[in-house]
Design a protein around this nucleic acid. Structure first.
Length: 213
DNA sequence: CGGTCGATAGTCT
DNA sequence: GACTATCGACCGA
């Protein structure tokens, strides 16, 4: 009855391309997170492109560091970082090796494993909020730095696999400025989303933090 | 649904 | 020491 999504891994060569090609191509694709309690399956609805060392908004902008070294490695791996003292965000490393570019997964629709996702996202009022925002997405999937560097293009027993999925109608793919990115990288229209999808996170302009008193 | 505000610790200057 | 590829509580509508 239930039409199960295709869980074969995405061919790595689809990720071995320039980040601005890969980012919109990830919309509608499916991420499978396998946990001890069972799988959580997510359809990607919103992403942002980060163009390596040339991009002031990218973690790779100032060169290789211990944190960002996965971005400099081969495509098809997970770059997971910890931010704001509380949250994790998940990226797909793409482009030719060494280019240090990646795609931040900003939002998605939970297709399977909602019960598991809800247990990790107790503040979500509706299921459409389970993965509405990059840190919420990582939380819903139970992704943290332990998975940094995970190969997303291998088979059935990997903790995290990127799968082909069903692409959205081309006319539903929109793009606009990146969320939360300040400085010179702010204006690039490198956020991509599926128009009208209820799981897409709201746009928030970057606001530099005020100093604590 | 939208706006404001504070939390919290890793990372780099 | 400052900033951060953010979110939740809380409030008003």
């Amino acid at each position: 009855m239930t039409e199960r999504s295709d869980r074969t891994p995405l061919p790595r060569n689809l990720l071995d391309r320039p980040v601005l090609d890969v980012a919109p191509d990830l919309l509608g694709r499916v991420l499978v997170r396998r946990t001890a309690e069972g799988p959580i399956v997510l359809r990607i609805t919103e992403v942002e492109a980060y163009a390596g060392e040339l991009d002031p908004g990218s973690h790779a902008f100032r060169g290789r560091t211990p944190r960002n070294e996965v971005m400099f490695g081969p495509p098809g791996h997970a770059y997971v970082y910890f931010t704001y003292g509380m949250w994790h965000c998940l990226n797909v490393v793409c482009g030719p090796e060494g280019r240090a570019s990646g795609v931040l997964l900003r939002a998605g629709e939970v297709l399977e494993g909602q019960e598991l996702a809800r247990k990790r996202r107790l503040s979500a009022r509706y299921d459409k909020e389970l993965a509405k925002g990059p840190a919420r997405l990582a939380t819903a999937l139970g992704v943290d730095r332990v998975l940094n560097g995970t190969d997303l293009c291998t088979g059935d027993d990997a903790p995290l696999t990127l799968c082909p999925g069903e692409p959205p109608a081309p006319d539903l793919v929109r793009n606009g400025p990146r969320t939360g990115v300040g400085g010179d990288g702010a204006h690039h229209p490198w956020r991509f989303w599926i128009d009208g999808d209820p799981t897409v996170s709201p746009y928030r302009p970057h606001v530099p933090r005020k100093r604590a008193t």
